[in-house]
C-alpha cells in the first residue's frame, strides 16, 4: 500500500494536526496550515481527524497510486488531474492502481490537501506525524517529499471491494461538501483579528493604517509565516520586548514595520510586538492567501472571535456526521 511521488512541486510535506505539548522544549507545533481542508479531506477518505495527509504547495506535484485507494483532495484548487481527466475536489474519489495524479496549475488558494484512506503511515515522533523541516524530524524521513519517495499507507477505512466497477482511472462520488459550507476563501480576503497585547503601543496612525489598508502578500511567505507589505507600522516609542509565547495567527511587527502573520511552523517564542491576532475561525482563509494577492484586516471583539469559532466548530461537527452518514449510505464505510 503506497503512493509514489513523481514530482514534489514547490513543497509537499506530510502533516497531521501538529505536535502539541512540547512547546516548553522549544519544539514547534507544525501541522497542516489549513486545518479545515485537512480535517475534511480526512473525513472524506474515511479517516479520523488525526490522520496524516499530504500538504501540497501550489503546482507541479505528481504522484502515482500503487494500489487501489480511496482519496480526497481539498483546499486550494491546483487543477487536480488523474490520467488526463479533471478530478472533482471536496469529495471521496476512488483511484485505481497505477493511476497518476498531477496538480497542473493554481486556480485559487495556495495549498491542496491529499488524504488517503488509512492515512499516510509514517512513524509518529513525539506524538505526531507532522514534518518539522528545520529539526529534520517527523513526516517522511524528517524532510520535504522528493521524487521517488514511496509513502506507506495505513489500513484503508473505506471498503475497496465496494468501489463501483468501471474502466476509468478513478471514480468520484456524486456528492461533495457544499460550497456554502467552505470557508470564505478568496483572492483578496478580509481577515478578522482581535487586538494584540501591544496594540496600544502602536501609534494611532499605525493602528488605523493596520485596519484600513490592504497588505500585499509577499513571495517570502511560507509555512512559518505570511510576510506582508504595506504602510509601515510604528511603535509610539520604540523599545525592546522580552521574548514570550506566540500563537497560530499572531500578527507581529518587526523593526521594519511590515507585518508577519505567524503560521504553522512559527517558533515557540517571539520578541516582536504583537499588534493583533487572527481569529481562529479565519485561519483556514489566511492559510490559503496567495503570494501576489492582498489581504485586509477587520477588527472584531474577543467575544465575537469566540462565538465565531464555536459556530465554525459546530458546523464542522455536523459536516463530519453528514460525511459519515453518506459514506455508510453508499456502503463504503
Amino acid at each position: 500500500m503506497s503512493i509514489r511521488i513523481h514530482k514534489p512541486g514547490l513543497l509537499a510535506t506530510v502533516q497531521d494536526l501538529g505536535r502539541t505539548g512540547y512547546g516548553k522544549y522549544g519544539i514547534i507545533v507544525s501541522g497542516a496550515m489549513d486545518r479545515f481542508a485537512h480535517r475534511t479531506a480526512n473525513w472524506l477518505a474515511g479517516n479520523d481527524d488525526g490522520a496524516a495527509a499530504l500538504e501540497i504547495t501550489l503546482s507541479g506535484f505528481a504522484a502515482e497510486f500503487e494500489q487501489d485507494h480511496w482519496v480526497a483532495i481539498t483546499g486550494g484548487n491546483m487543477t487536480p488531474v488523474i490520467d488526463g481527466r479533471a478530478v472533482p475536489m471536496w469529495r471521496p474519489v476512488f483511484v485505481r492502481k497505477g493511476s497518476r495524479l498531477v496538480l497542473k496549475q493554481p486556480v485559487s488558494g495556495c495549498r491542496a490537501y491529499l488524504a488517503v484512506s488509512g492515512g499516510v503511515d509514517v512513524p509518529e515522533v513525539m506524538g505526531s506525524r507532522s514534518t518539522y523541516l528545520r529539526a529534520g524530524i517527523g513526516g517522511f524521513e524528517g524532510r520535504a517529499l522528493r521524487a521517488g519517495d514511496e509513502l506507506p499507507v495505513g489500513t484503508p477505512r473505506l471498503g475497496v471491494s465496494e468501489a463501483p466497477a468501471g474502466d476509468g482511472s478513478f471514480y468520484a462520488v456524486s456528492w461533495a461538501i457544499p460550497w456554502s459550507l467552505l470557508p470564505a476563501y478568496g483572492q483578496n480576503p478580509a481577515i478578522r483579528v482581535i487586538r494584540g497585547r501591544q496594540w496600544d503601543d502602536f501609534t494611532l496612525r499605525s493602528r488605523q493604517a493596520f485596519l484600513q489598508s490592504s497588505f500585499h502578500v509577499t513571495p517570502q511567505s511560507d509555512r512559518m509565516g505570511y510576510r506582508l507589505s504595506g504602510p509601515s507600522l510604528e511603535l509610539e516609542s520604540p523599545r525592546e520586548y522580552l521574548s514570550e509565547a506566540v500563537a497560530l495567527g499572531t500578527v507581529q511587527i518587526p523593526a521594519d514595520g511590515q507585518p508577519i502573520v505567524l503560521m504553522a511552523d512559527r517558533q515557540t517564542l517571539g520578541g516582536y510586538p504583537k499588534i493583533a491576532q487572527v481569529i481562529s475561525a479565519d485561519l483556514p482563509v489566511m492559510a490559503q492567501a496567495t503570494p501576489g494577492g492582498h489581504i485586509a484586516f477587520r477588527e472584531v471583539s474577543p467575544e465575537e472571535a469566540e462565538s465565531l469559532f464555536i459556530r465554525e466548530e459546530r458546523k464542522l461537527k455536523r459536516l463530519k456526521t453528514m460525511i459519515r452518514l453518506k459514506l455508510k449510505e453508499d456502503n463504503y464505510a
Binding site: 502539541t20 512547546g23 516548553k24 522580552l242 514570550e244 509565547a245 500563537a247 481562529s280 469566540e306 466548530e313
Partner: peptide, 18 residues
C-alpha cells in the same frame, strides 16, 4: 488544557475552546 509555554516573565496557557 493543551499545553503551557514559559518565557522570562510570562507563561502562555493554550486551550481548546471546545
Amino acid at each position: 488544557f493543551v499545553e503551557c509555554v514559559p518565557a522570562f516573565t510570562t507563561l502562555c496557557v493554550y486551550y481548546d475552546l471546545m
